[in-house]
Design a protein around this nucleic acid. Structure first.
Lengths: 348, 348
DNA sequence: TCTGCGATAGAAAGCGCTTTCCATCGAGGA
DNA sequence: TCCTCGATGGAAAGCGCTTTCTATCGCAGA
């Protein structure tokens, strides 16, 4: 059978209690004893039984990272950063690191709740929710309740790129300043002289979509420029490709298209190119997020940079408890306009 | 305190054993009793204690998915596919799904081993290792030993995109046919008339790097064309960018560059463009993997498509045990040449 | 020499489930 | 009418650890 702590104890001629103490390092053990135990662990190739340990200690080493779409580099970059921050935090119980596990919700509230329950079951040490959420009242309250339950069970909850739950001011939250970013982007376009701007937005009823759209509209309103056509779709290239046809159909004289994110922008560019339209000569295109491939698009994408890596690291540290959340509500992560070749003065 | 199974039992006026049986659904329980229990669960908002359950049952719902770089869509796509296959497998113990968790090794053997130990601790139901590995003998034997231990403890082990451990023929393995893919790609280039082909390879000592390089060389050898310069680097755009300078320095008359993957190819294109070289007029460029952005590169990337999604799903099912591995050794996943605009006849 | 205290280590009581035996009950067969 | 058997549910023994409570030992202080 598998080696248990008792086997190690027998071999090292000490009690199970002592082995446990050596392994967890939270109690004085004489150096010679410690060494004897460690040797026995080694010789028997002992591996701690996680469930037993978690049961007795009433917590586990698990840190859950929930993302909307793991295949999207936007989340991949953040998750990767968080995971390394969590890994280096090291020295949890069980003599080891925390196990950062990323769970792919696919943006579905139901799956999100399922994962949250599973994590609650495992008595996770912390949970990080990455990315915007659906703005459905039912989902919002269900999630809020679940998060509250997790928190009161001792699980640290961190929101990263998702607005904080209205009622609850004490779970750590990092929010991206999508509004200002989007606003700057549209101001840039207006500054270049664009007056007919189409918008290929993200999925409906999502916080991120709404905030970016609000920033866009704010810039338009401030400049007294009427809003152009808006189309909603997924955060993928296909959506951008299809949105472009729709946008152009609604206003053939568009001189610029703002996309929900860089991936969507790629689809927009493809559709434009296919119609023989020059970028930015005929139509300027802008993205959002500044994903790695954006600089290599042709022309390179004007976009809004979000410090994804930094935000991920910060979220990871908040989850580990190695850094404290700011006192006064959520922490805002700034967005920075990056102007490149895909936007220029309108020709017509 | 938290609600336990005993509380539910008391409320439903049955024994804890009955509650457990209702929850796990592996024993006949009268409909009326079941309903009473379920109602109690609901009313008390009971959540199973995972560690306790795993301890008693000696297995858990966890399925670990180890990837080399979660920020790379190559892994993101596979992991996402595997995760959904695992999710839909549903109905594990605890009345619920399996929890697919992805762990980012960063390609480091040490972290890989750490995660494997952590997963072993948690008594994971299965483990999927995605992507090539370092070809270091020490690492190879250490990993092989660890995997053997996991397997004998009842954890299902699946290799996806990694060659099987030599000695061990009974862990399921999906291997990408990188060799043939690379060979086809180079044959395509040779067919176009290229005779001086540079190669921007992946990291040294990695299986994937070696296999792709072997395919490339096989094509060259078969055609009696001398091998051009080769440079090794990471799987990122930066590496491609830098490799290009090096490659061109070693042979200024290169008419084609094959990249380790699509991301690297993007860097190659950027460097070429910066030098005023036309693609494919002056230099043809080819990638590998056919990641989503490749079709939107300008010109669109000629590449080798790997059915990442399909492989991920298959790996997930193998891990769930809903599908059986083929009897005779590893399963080969075919690679398909995709010709697009970035390769053409050499001008000079 | 005696007392007391710090440093260590052991005993044992759980942690909250699962599961193997058993016990019980009602119905149908002889 | 008695017995057997299937269906259902309870009792209780762990699963392998952590941790509180004690016990022991050696040494410094009086």
């Amino acid at each position: 059978m598998t080696v248990t702590l008792a086997d190690v104890a027998a071999r090292a001629r000490v009690s199970p209690a002592t082995v446990s103490r050596v392994l967890n390092g939270n109690y004085p053990v004489a150096a010679s004893t410690r060494e004897r135990v460690l040797r026995a662990v080694d010789e028997l190739d002992y591996v701690l039984n996680g469930p037993a340990s978690s049961l007795a200690a009433a917590t586990s080493d698990l840190v859950g990272v929930l993302v909307n779409d793991i295949a999207d580099p936007f989340f991949g970059i953040m998750a990767s950063a968080a995971q390394s921050a969590i890994g280096e935090g090291a020295a949890g119980r069980g003599g080891g690191e925390k196990l950062a596990v990323v769970c792919n919700t696919g943006g579905s509230p139901a799956r999100e709740l399922t994962y949250l329950t599973l994590l609650q079951r495992q008595r996770a040490a912390a949970v990080i929710l990455m990315g915007g959420s659906l703005e459905d009242p039912e989902h919002l309250t269900a999630t809020a309740a679940k998060l509250a339950r997790l928190a009161e069970a001792g699980t640290r909850v961190v929101l990263c790129g998702r607005p904080p739950v209205p009622g609850d001011a004490n779970t750590a939250a990092l929010v991206f300043d999508n509004r200002t970013g989007a606003r700057r982007l549209t101001e840039h376009l207006l500054g270049l002289g664009h007056r007919r701007i189409g918008y290929a937005a993200g999925p409906a009823d999502r916080t991120t979509t709404r905030h970016r759209l609000e920033g866009h509209r704010a810039a338009l309103t401030a400049a007294g420029v009427p809003e152009g056509p808006t189309v909603r779709g997924a955060y993928d290239r296909q959506a951008g490709y299809e949105a472009t046809a729709e946008l152009l159909a609604r206003d053939p004289d568009l001189t610029a298209i703002v996309a929900a994110n860089d991936t969507v922008a790629l689809g927009v560019c493809a559709a434009l190119r296919e119609r023989g339209l020059d970028i930015p000569g005929d139509v300027s295109v802008a993205g959002f997020d500044d994903l790695p491939f954006s600089v290599d698009a042709v022309p390179a994408l004007t976009t809004v940079r979000l410090p994804l890596h930094g935000a991920g690291v910060r979220a990871g540290r908040l989850a580990m408890g190695t850094e404290e959340p700011p006192a006064g509500g959520p922490e805002t992560v700034p967005a920075e306009l990056v102007v490149r070749g895909s936007t220029g003065r309108p020709r017509r």
